[in-house]
């Protein structure tokens, strides 16, 4: 499968051109899959909402590719990190299963869409309350430190809106106090649902907060894949080498609604022409062609492989069974004898 080929490309070579090619294919896979889920959503086939990462795939994949599961790195994605999830190692079929309500998915249809994760595999299943997964990632790092492990890093994603929460503040402060190897990636995509950044924060650049928290900070063009790969590579290495937590702000624009239920009419075309308003996937594709790292024929082959992969995953997931309420245990505790069960009286 193309998915596996991308992973091989990542492992076989760490030279920038190979990494760029692998990153681009994860971005393309994520975009193609999300566009497919969006059309399934419009067809009424999706349980719950669809939230896309259109426009922030480069930033998302940058962090995930810098992480290394073999070193027990931890990844805390958010709703717009399909590209990062795939690059970290998520199987496309599991993403399709969760959106389509298959009981075979990692959340067994008990939770849906972007809330999927795999705790044992190091990918945090986010809850909806923004910022609250950051300290959970920190806790994984604290636990590893207690267990005398070393060389691990945690990478966690948030948006500009999520930086306004108390949980974000508490978690960043805690990570700095504990000197954790944590990389916090903030996708400043200019909108939190419909609220623009002018109503979200009043500092000039969110990276200004790094010094206040005791983080090392980076403010980058989140639409430029090359810059994203290079910056996250550096930030993750700095964290791994013991330089403490890192804050990376990616400037970009959300090129879709908050979810597919939202037409994003509040985002003007003018915004898309301004700085950081471009489509990172198109920019990366142009770079592949201009630099000779790839060519039209190869990109066309990647595209058709990925389209097939997405069709295979979504059609397989649609044929799988949904949950059976009569087979459900309805038990929220792992300790069975202390579970009250489903008392209705």
């Amino acid at each position: 499968m193309a998915e596996a080929e991308i992973k091989v490309a990542k492992k076989e070579s760490s030279d920038p051109a190979s990494q760029y090619r692998a990153a681009f294919r994860y971005m393309l896979l994520a975009r193609t899959f999300e566009e497919r889920t969006a059309s399934l959503y419009r067809a009424g086939k999706i349980v719950g909402g669809v939230f896309m990462g259109k426009g922030q795939e480069a930033f998302s994949v940058g962090l995930a590719l810098a992480l290394d599961k073999e070193r027990e790195d931890i990844y805390g994605p958010l709703i717009r990190d399909q590209a990062g999830r795939l690059a970290f190692g998520e199987q496309l079929i599991d993403a399709a299963r969760t959106y389509l309500g298959s009981v075979k998915g990692p959340m067994r249809a008990r939770d849906g869409n972007v809330h999927r994760g795999n705790i044992h595999d190091g990918m945090i299943p986010m809850i909806s309350h923004l910022g609250s997964h950051i300290s959970v990632v920190s806790g994984r790092l604290i636990g590893k430190r207690f267990n005398n492990k070393s060389n691990f890093v945690g990478g966690v994603c948030i948006g500009d809106g999520g930086t306004s929460t108390g949980a974000f503040h508490e978690a960043l402060n805690q990570a700095a106090v504990e000197k954790l190897p944590l990389v916090v990636a903030v996708a400043d995509n200019q909108f939190a649902y419909s609220t623009s950044t002018e109503r979200q924060f009043a500092c000039k650049d969110l990276v200004d907060r790094a010094i206040g928290y005791g983080f090392e900070g980076y403010s980058i063009d989140g639409t430029n894949l090359d810059v994203c790969l290079e910056t996250f590579d550096k930030a993750v290495n700095r964290a791994r080498e013991g330089h403490g937590p890192q804050l990376v702000i990616g400037h970009l624009l959300r090129l879709c609604g908050h979810g597919e239920h939202d037409d994003a009419s509040y985002i003007s075309d003018e915004r898309k022409k301004q700085a950081f308003g471009g489509d990172c996937l198109q920019i990366a594709q142009q770079h592949l062609l201009d630099s000779g790292i790839s060519n039209k024929i190869e990109i066309s082959q990647w595209t058709s492989d990925i389209v097939k992969q997405v069709e295979d995953a979504t059609s397989a997931a649609q044929r799988e069974p949904g949950p059976d309420p009569f087979q459900e245990t309805w038990q929220a505790l792992s300790t069975s004898h202390l579970s009250e069960g489903n008392a209705t009286t």
Partner: peptide, 14 residues
């Protein structure tokens, strides 16, 4: 908030 969040994470590490 961060106290409990980090405890949840640490518990997943045993």
């Amino acid at each position: 908030d961060a106290m409990v969040g980090s405890a949840i994470g640490a518990s997943a590490e045993g």
